[in-house]
Every structure is written in C-alpha cells, then in structure tokens.
Amino acid sequence: MEPELVVTDIRDGYRVLMLNRPDRLNSFTAAMHKALMAALIAAEADTSCRAIILTGAGRGFCAGQDLSDGVYTPGETPDLSATIETYYNPLIRKLRSLPMPVISAVNGVAAGAGANVAFAGDIVIAGRSAKFVQSFAKLGLVPDAGGTWILPRLIGVARARAIALLAEPVAAEQAEAWGMIWKAIDDAELMTEAHRLAAHFATQPTAGLALMKRAFDLSETNSLDQQLDLERDLQGDAGRLPDYSEGVTAFMEKRAPRFVGRQ
C-alpha cells in the first residue's frame, strides 16, 4: 500500500499535518498538493480543531516543487503558471485564511516554494539545523508561493532581493535574527515546542484570533485610516463573541477562562 502523502495526527484541540515524502525531501507533486489541501479543508471543517502544526517527515521540511512530476519535459516549453494557479496559489490562500493559528515547524531544509509555504504560517519555528533557500534563481525562475510578497515584509527589500537573486541559504539562527521566523530551537526540541504552542492555542479564543489574523493581513495594503476603521469593525465583531464575555467574567472572578474557541 502506498504511504500517505500527508499524515494527519489528530490531537486534543489541534492537528499535526506532516508532509510525507521523506525520500524526496517532501517536495511537492500534484498528488501531495491535493492531499495537503484535503487535510487543510478537513481541519477547517472540524470545529474542535483550534490550531494546526505543519511539518515534514524525515530530514527536511519541503524542498519545493518535484521537477520530475511532469512540470518539465526536455524539448517542450512548460506552462509553469498553470501549476502555480492550480496548486500553489490556492494553498497559500488557504493557509493564510484558516480560522485558526498555523504553526510551521521547519525541520531541515525549506527550499523554493517549500520555504514560502512555511512562511505562510502564522508562527514559524525552526530547528537550528534548518535552512531557508530561495532556490528559484538556480533555475532561472521567479520566487512564487507568495515569496515576493512575504519576504520584503518580513526582512526588508534589501535582504529579500539579495537572498532571492543570490539563492544563498539562510540558517535558522540568522533567519531568527532577521525576523524571518519567530524562533530557532534545538532540533531535538522542535516538535515539543510546536506541540506546546498548539496545545496553548487549543485553549484560546480561536474566533478572536482569526479576526486578528485578518487584521494583520489587511494591514499590508490598507492606509492608516482604512486600518483604523477595520480595527473598529473587527473589535465590534469580537465583542459580540461569547469568548469576550467569558474572558471578562473570568478576569473579574479571578479564574482561568474557559473559551469556546470556534463558533
């Protein structure tokens, strides 16, 4: 029997989604794209799922696109835009719009689109041996999967242009120092920390956190006036959620809140 391309581990209040092509450094094929999207849709449909950990099997997170998966045939001119439109763009949009925090736990190499998929998470942590590589220049290609959008916002235009044009790897500790990721962690502790974060989010006001995610995403293109109006509207929405009442009541009663999470 063929192994699952994406392994789902359902925990109490969250799910772990593991890319599972370790022999190919979890590089993407059309089949793995479909499996990951199906796993994300299933997690979103499960109202008891209040966080997701995305990680890779074996010694790497994801090496990007598997070039042997029909995207290139010698002597033919490929339409790479079709692959992006069919698979990568929907994946990034789904990751960014999920109504729960997504934790990218990067083990080993994250290259090309694999790096940018990791950056689509809300919190990115990486083992100290991990490396992030915008490898597109080695093939004469343009960073995709949101790379040209997210990288300048994370580390500034100068660094984003340099690492893309040079295709030089960025070690996890350097990525942390630049603000590319949240934290670099000892390899042996990576998944322990990922589970700690997910277990924390499994007890938090998930619907409110989803509104927060939306606010940060829209802030990238909004003017200050537009963002102030958005904050006003989203705060109104948050105040009508049961978790706000529970949070205030718990504070007044000096006890831990018991948040409903997703509505």
Rank of each mutant, 00 (worst) to 15 (best):
L40F: 00
D23F: 05
V16E: 01
A160I: 15
R232P: 05
G121P: 03
E2I: 01
L98F: 05
G140F: 13
D122E: 07
A145T: 08
L151G: 00
Q226F: 04
M18E: 14
A51C: 05
E189I: 08
L98E: 00
G114C: 07
A207I: 07
F132Q: 02
V124R: 02
S135E: 06
L218Q: 15
P78Q: 05
L197H: 00
A105D: 07
V106D: 01
G60W: 02
R258G: 15
V109F: 02
A115F: 06
D12R: 15
T221M: 09
T206I: 13
A120N: 08
G208F: 03
E176A: 14
A256Y: 12
A145S: 11
V106W: 03
V102L: 05
L228V: 06
G75M: 07
T148Q: 13
G247K: 03
A82S: 09
F61M: 07
V260A: 14
T73M: 07
E246C: 10
A172F: 05
S27A: 15
L228Q: 15
A175P: 01
P101Q: 02
I92C: 03
I92T: 08
S48K: 13
D79C: 15
E4I: 00
A177P: 12
D237M: 15
L17V: 09
E253Y: 13
T77Q: 10
M1N: 08
L19A: 06
A120W: 00
R161I: 08
R196E: 08
A30G: 08
T192D: 14
A137S: 11
P205T: 06
Q263Y: 04
